[in-house]
Amino acid sequence: MHARAVLTVERGAGGRSVVRELRSQSPLSLVPRRGTAAAADPAVTVHMVGSASTPLAGDDVELDVRVGPGADLVLTGVAAAVALPGTDRPSSLALRFTLGEDASVQYLPEPTVVTARAHHHTLLHARLAPTSRLRAREVLVAGRAGEPSGRYRGTVRVEEHPTPHQSAVPVVPLLHQTQELGDPVLQESSAHLAARRVLGTEVLIWGADGVAVTGDWWSLSPLSRRGSLITAVAPDAVSTQRALAEAIAAHPGWAVGTRHDAVRALVF
């Protein structure tokens, strides 16, 4: 199934972020959080629901997210994604984020479990303005317990684009990385996963970046231009998420706080 979804968030009256456009179709549903908690939160939270979180072979999902100047979006998944085998075609998920000045996106999907015989591709392409902020987490599980991993290839590319009055400034790549699962040589190699089953990464383009910090099996490293990347490997998803939380707490920009403490409470 092919699905194309669009989500546009803008800063509305009173400084609160509002959903301006929301189009989604099976197998992807986008559901804005409602209720009193949502009403009190100046950021918009949208859940990705449905088969988007359980891709089948042949499913081809694209999501374009635009966040206007000064607006804030939290995009989450509600269930562990399981890339399942099906027909002979791979499943794919392509996310394109475009952020205006002073806009922010936190992309916090649940872990992707790449089951045996699955073949799944993902792309996250984020275009930032010089003052936008991005937090993007990815937790990959190489197969369910006791089974080998299916095939997975995911690319993250984060670019900083000049504002309209800086037309002579080139586009700067902040991060470009492809992760691959399902190759036994790589998985066993102590240069790649060192036989650990779960890989967690978290991109943090979020204010001040400090010096690199390391734990036993995680690192928080400043990128070349701006932003940081957290990398963690562990035998299970829970330990991986704990390592990511420990690492993000060591990031100076994040420690200063988001504009919305409610968002932080939600995330932890």
């Binding site: 690319t155 470009h176 990385q177 492809t178 992760q179 691959e180 102590s190 240069a191 790649h192 996963l193 060192a194 650990r196 890989l199 990464t201 690199a212 910090v213 390391t214 099996w217 995680w218 690192s219 490293s221 990398t231 963690a232 490997v233």
Partner: peptide, 16 residues
């Protein structure tokens, strides 16, 4: 742009 997660985190740990 293939990543090498353990190589990356070991590189920093080696320095630290």
């Amino acid at each position: 742009a293939p990543g090498a997660p353990v190589l990356d985190l070991m590189a920093q740990a080696h320095v630290d």
